[in-house]
Design a binder for these strands. Structure first.
Lengths: 156, 156
DNA sequence: GCTGAAAACTTAATAAG
DNA sequence: CTTATTAAGTTTTCAGC
């Protein structure tokens, strides 16, 4: 699917603003098309898989889940896909990333109420044949929209 | 703020399902309260900062942005907060994570249309006093809702 | 492809328990 | 705290361009 500047502007805005507080009318006003067009474009972006979905960002600490750890791991390359899926299905694991690298090729993000939750995940990953190289405490995370999508918007 | 089982179930469902395709009525049905209650709970969860906001997950490759790299970096600990903010404001940077560690304490996620986009970010980070230890190509990323929130839902 | 208008749907505010 | 009702707002559909 080829994106035109209307698609790119819409993508920029839905990344920049909280989606639930940004109506198609609001987007339409800033992009300079009708709200029906925004609705159609957003549907096409979803259907083509460019917008995968909308996820809430959870502040785990405020939610009473104080432990937040990133395991930097090495998994056998041939098994990486399977092992990544298994890791994701381990309780308390919230995110897994595959990296294209011989070692340190899997990042596993874990949250938990108790330190024992995190320790149990470490054991489970070990049982899956995943080597934990290092474990890091996550302090803070920040995201930003990609400016590339918004370059033609007035005022941007 | 203390979460009860209703809050946890709602949190689980909004993580699990695409938020824009899940109305408060749908949630209400599964949790066993009225849609007004779901609406009230969701507002409280947002106001208390537990739900930070709803972000679209973008498939950069499908969007015509083929390069996706994770820089594993070391930044001076005293400056970490400032440096993380500066890194986030660098064009083509979409995500920054601070880790609680002496070295390799900053993960910077970069996307770009050209390899030169990524190279330019590497130079910009260097100019900010950030050491790039390794750079990894991101193949795939998977997320999962935290089961802890959903343990009391029927059928889960 | 786009738009405006109508229909369908969703959320938030209210009143009451 | 909860819920049902209702008003306000939003999204989608559709005929016409």
């Amino acid at each position: 699917m080829n994106l035109d500047q209307t698609d790119r502007s819409i993508l920029y805005l839905v990344q920049k603003e909280n989606r639930t507080e940004l109506s198609t009318g609001d987007i339409a006003e800033q992009v300079g098309v009708s709200s029906s067009t925004v609705s159609n474009r957003l549907r096409r972006l979803r259907e083509s898989g460019i917008i995968v979905d909308y996820k809430p960002e959870i502040d785990y600490e405020k939610a009473g889940i104080p432990h937040h750890v990133l395991f930097v791991c090495t998994a056998p390359i041939g098994d990486l896909k399977r092992v990544a899926t298994d890791a994701l299905n381990t309780p308390n694991v919230v995110n897994v990333r595959e990296l294209l690298s011989g070692t340190r090729n899997l990042l596993v993000e874990v949250v938990g109420v108790q330190t024992t939750d995190v320790e149990r995940v470490a054991e489970d990953l070990d049982a899956l044949g995943i080597d934990i190289e290092t474990s890091e405490i996550v302090r803070e995370e920040y995201s930003r929209p990609l400016g590339h999508f918004g370059s033609q918007l007035s005022g941007e």
